[in-house]
């Protein structure tokens, strides 16, 4: 084939870089800044930074559509703005590139199980708009070990991923409680999990939501239990750029509206009937009374759109990670404050 190249062949070979150069020019998008809500409305969709795959939070279904707890939060924000939960595009982001993507305006909002810490909140030019999932590090053990509390794990061998805050939290916890343990460390999360599954250690530790996901890939999930102790605080929430208060409010109040809707019993199924409710709180929430939606740059029926699109907080939780999903995570801390949890929606008034 090489021997047959004529003069034309040479010219053509050089010309193949032309479409590449053209694409480079065309690929450069228009600049956008400051008023994110106006920009989002103008382009007609929300660009949401999502995880590159985390069971229950962001994962593709059989048809390739993104589904999950965080994904539904993106859809809720899109529904609040456009009245249509499908007007959202997802940018899967790795842990390393997530903040850059938000800072540079590549995504409008980052809803990617990101832990709210002081340094992230204060020094990255970003703002956390709430906590949609209270996570924390927990332990999983075999049921036949006969342990019912993490405080009984003294002397146990524990599988842990190295180089993570998980490893540090583990050391802190055992030192604080004056217990001994044998860390069995691994470089990768799946190695850690399979080592535990094959019986190389007594307990496995990582974030509680991760423990439930791990249990799905075990040979006999019924033989394992997650201990009740949570030894670290991992509040996960949506993040926006600092300095755009209007956009910050839209995301923050979408979160509160989802919580308020659950508290007031407004569900995806009954949201239309609820509009005729006599309860003044429901009337205000659903925009029958007042102009709370307009005040943050949306329409007054914004909450109706959210709930119609994705349901309330409880429904999102149940569908993706709760007891009706394969993950079967209990509400725990994420129950409403009225049910013994700490999820507390600020009042709409």
């Amino acid at each position: 084939m090489f021997g047959q190249l004529g003069k034309q062949g040479w010219l053509i070979m050089k010309a193949t870089s032309l479409p590449l150069a053209l694409g480079l020019v065309l690929g450069l998008g228009a600049a956008a800044h400051a008023a994110t809500l106006d920009d989002v409305k103008a382009k007609g969709f929300l660009q949401c930074g999502a995880n590159t795959g985390l069971p229950g939070f962001a994962a593709p279904d059989n048809a390739g559509n993104w589904t999950g707890f965080d994904v539904d939060y993106c859809r809720a924000v899109a529904a609040a703005i456009f009245g249509d939960p499908s007007k959202v595009k997802f940018t899967p982001l790795s842990a390393k590139e997530r903040f850059t993507a938000l800072q540079s305006g590549e995504v409008d909002v980052l809803i990617r199980n990101t832990t709210w810490t002081m340094s992230r909140d204060t020094s990255l030019g970003l703002k956390f708009a709430g906590v949609n999932y209270y996570d924390g590090q927990g332990f999983m053990v075999r049921k036949d070990l006969g342990v019912s509390s993490a405080l009984e794990l003294s002397g146990a061998s524990i599988c842990v991923q190295t180089g993570t805050t998980t490893e540090l939290n583990l050391a802190d916890y055992f030192r604080a409680n004056k217990m001994d343990y044998n860390p069995v460390v691994f470089e990768k999360l799946d190695e850690t999990n399979s080592a535990y599954d094959s019986g190389r250690c007594d307990a496995l530790t990582t974030d509680a939501s991760g423990l439930y996901a791990t249990r799905l890939t075990m040979k006999s999930p019924g033989d394992h239990m997650v201990l009740p102790e949570i030894i670290s605080k991992e509040p996960l929430g949506p993040v926006v750029r600092q300095g755009d208060d209007q956009w910050f409010n839209v995301v923050k109040w979408t979160h509160f509206a989802l919580l308020d809707a659950e508290e007031l019993g407004v569900t995806q199924a009954n949201v239309e009937e609820m509009k005729t409710s006599d309860n003044p709180e429901i009337k205000r929430l659903l925009g029958v009374d007042g102009t709370f939606g307009q005040a943050i740059g949306l329409s007054n029926d914004w909450v109706v759109n959210i709930i119609k699109g994705v349901g309330n907080y409880g429904e999102i939780f149940e569908r993706n990670i709760g007891t009706s999903s394969p993950l079967e995570i209990e509400r725990g801390l994420n129950a409403l404050w009225t049910d013994g949890g700490i999820q507390y929606g600020m009042p709409v008034r």
Partner: peptide, 24 residues
């Protein structure tokens, strides 16, 4: 895969995170 594009291997691995198909 590391820049968030899903080639064949990337999309196979991405689908491991679908809780509806998570098995040993």
């Amino acid at each position: 895969y590391i820049i968030g594009l899903f080639d064949l291997l990337g999309i196979v691995r991405l689908n491991f995170s679908d809780a509806n198909w998570a098995t040993p």
